[in-house]
Design a protein around this nucleic acid. Structure first.
Length: 347
DNA sequence: AACCCGCTCAACCGCGGAGGG
DNA sequence: GCCCTCCGCGGTTGAGCGGGT
């Protein structure tokens, strides 16, 4: 079945890293940058494959990694982004400064997923187990709207992830070129504001300095799972059949510059209008439930209750469904929409 | 003390995408 | 267009640890 593991090569060590190996890797990268991972082990005098070195560096040795317990805010972020993005850990990690995708993935699998299950919530769909998918027109419409929103947010997040990677590269090059200070490259967190300017590392007061263009994007199965979209319709975005991705998403997908983002964002208002349409209240939210299992927690939920209250004739359970969804997606979008100027409540 | 079991998380594996020749 | 290399990602594994019996 294809390629043999790179570490199968003669004499390459596997398993836990020793302090000596860590020291060698750190010293080499601080001196030269990582350059080609493939050739790094030999140059650094390590009996490891490049992949192992890269993993060790990105998941453990990098100086900008925060270790230790996840904060409530971080948990919240992970749950919300997971509802939106599914198991796309690298994309989620771009919104958690100083946390690695591996660490987030582990934390999800060992803590958060179990917590959801315990509370009767499907960790894949983020829905209550006993909740059946309704085919009423109102909810179908809601689901479709959610689907589009998720795609849109996904495109944005993916763009941020891409820029994060590019920035890391840029900074690393800068670091390698100058090799002046002895602190290793920093990782950054990005907002999605539309300006093309980004500040230098450590400039200003912290992490949220850089900004992102849009990027190419693929929509995973998991992405739409929380929305209750049937698999067959979800799959349309993944094959060559006519796509249901709205034009704005396709625009985002094909765009590659930050200036384009502002154009995309103009369309975002159409989405907001669509969402606020009296017949189309949306969103199912359990985040407060999820996070409320230990202590009371404050969520950045939306405030525009009137929108859903005016949603016409719905019974109480449907009303709650809309209400929960609204709050949930408000919190997710507020989270994603971390730029102060762009963080207005959407619903 | 010895054993068992569950949990955690660092590390590995294999796949797919990007990019160069 | 094809092939190859490199890299990054997500899924999975397994060593180490702590708690319970």
């Amino acid at each position: 079945m294809g390629r043999s593991p790179c570490c199968d090569k003669a004499g390459l060590k596997k398993g836990p890293w020793t302090p000596e190996e860590d020291q060698k890797l750190l010293a080499y990268i601080e001196e030269h940058g990582h350059g080609s991972w493939r050739s790094l082990p030999e140059k650094a005098g390590l009996q490891r494959c490049g992949k192992s070195c890269r993993l060790r560096w990105t998941n453990y040795l990098r100086p900008d990694i925060k270790r230790g317990k996840f904060t409530v805010q971080e948990e919240q972020t992970i749950i919300q982004l997971h509802a939106l993005l599914g198991n796309r850990w690298s994309a989620i990690a771009t919104h958690l400064p100083k946390r690695t995708d591996n660490e987030i993935k582990n934390y999800w699998n060992t803590h958060l997923k179990k917590r959801l299950v315990k509370m009767g919530i499907d960790p894949v769909t983020h829905k209550h187990k006993n909740e059946t998918l309704s085919s009423t027109t109102g909810q179908s419409k809601n689901a479709a709207t959610l689907s589009h929103m998720a795609q849109w947010e996904s495109a944005r997040l993916e763009a941020e992830a891409r820029l994060a990677r590019e920035s890391k590269l840029l900074h690393l090059q800068h670091y390698q070129n100058n090799n002046l200070n002895k602190t290793a490259p920093q990782q950054h967190c990005f907002t999605h504001k539309t300006s093309t300017n980004w500040t230098k590392p450590n400039e200003g007061n912290g992490d949220q300095q850089l900004e992102s263009p849009t990027s190419t994007v693929t929509f995973s199965e998991n992405l739409l799972m929380p929305l209750g979209i049937p698999t067959d319709s979800r799959n349309r975005n993944n094959n060559n059949e006519a796509s249901e991705i709205p034009a704005m998403i396709e625009f985002a997908v094909s765009s590659s510059t930050s200036s384009d983002v502002s154009l995309v964002k103009e369309h975002e208002h159409d989405w907001i209008r669509q969402i606020n349409c009296p017949s189309g209240g949306i969103g199912e939210g359990f985040t407060s439930l999820l996070l409320g299992d230990s202590v009371g927690r404050i969520l950045p939920t939306g405030k525009n209750e009137a929108t859903v209250a005016g949603a016409g004739v719905v019974n109480e359970s449907e009303y709650n469904y809309y209400e929960d969804n609204k709050n949930y997606w408000n919190s997710i979008l507020n989270l994603v929409d971390s730029s102060p100027s762009d963080s207005a409540t959407m619903f």
